[in-house]
């Protein structure tokens, strides 16, 4: 992974859950890790809701300057966000708001997103109505690219149905990513999978003859058990 990873995607694709997982896993390997919550679209389920948990793990959490006022419904961002972008010792995960509207916020930090040092990834969940077909996925990719002026360097397949997720959901999403890859050259980077489903997914992949699916096992940090 590059020093700065920009996690974008359509609304409700699961960027935040992916970003929190990536941050926690990066921290296992690197000393200085930061998560930048740039979500100015949503009032709920933002990375900052797990601020305490991640800070306890030693991860820097940046969003706005209101500290623990995490429910602040303002499109305001803290200047301290720049610390991990400027300080090259940091690995940074940038959790961006949904759609191209949410990605707009990246423009003010544009000078930090240098080719080779950073890359823009797009999260895809084909169980969401806006991205359940090729046209919808391509629309999101092209509008995010147009809004940010940054090329999309990879696809994260985060296709799931929460507690009802089956390996087939993940394979369907993977196949969609492969179609996008064929058309645009943007590669499928990895497919997320709830930890308890990984073995089932591997078996299903073997049966379907899929040999090159990079599986990224994830924990559900954002969603309490009673909501599953």
């Amino acid at each position: 992974m590059k020093r700065i990873t920009l996690v974008t995607g359509h609304y409700g694709s699961g960027k935040t859950e992916v970003s929190v997982n990536l941050s926690i896993d990066l921290k296992k390997e690197y000393d200085k890790v930061a998560i930048l919550d740039l979500d100015i679209m949503n009032p709920y389920f933002r990375s900052r809701e797990r601020q305490k948990m991640m800070e306890d793990l030693g991860i820097m959490v940046q969003f706005n300057s209101f500290g623990y006022d995490i429910t602040e419904d303002l499109p305001a961002l803290s200047a301290a966000l720049k610390t991990p972008l400027e300080n090259k010792e940091y690995k940074a995960i940038v959790d961006v708001g949904g759609d191209s509207d949410g990605a707009k916020v990246l423009n003010q930090f544009r000078k930090y997103f240098i080719e080779g040092d950073s890359e823009l990834l797009v999260v895809i969940n084909t169980n969401r109505p806006e991205s359940d077909d090729l046209e919808g996925c391509l629309f999101h990719i092209s509008t995010i690219q147009a809004e940010t002026g940054l090329p999309v360097k990879g696809l994260i397949n985060n296709t799931h149905m929460l507690s009802e997720t089956t390996p087939q959901d993940i394979i369907d999403g993977y196949n969609m990513c492969k179609k996008i890859e064929e058309l645009t050259g943007i590669p499928h980077r990895f497919s997320t999978c709830r930890e308890d489903l990984v073995e089932d997914l591997k078996a299903a992949n073997a049966e379907a003859g899929i040999t090159d699916m990079e599986i990224y096992p994830i924990k559900l940090y954002m969603r309490p058990s009673w909501l599953l």
């Binding site: 609304y11 969940n125 969401r128 109505p129 799931h160 149905m161 929460l162």
Partner: peptide
């Protein structure tokens, strides 16, 4: 078909 939807949209 089953879709994954946000409450308000649904």
């Amino acid at each position: 078909e089953k879709k994954l939807m946000k409450g308000n949209e649904a």
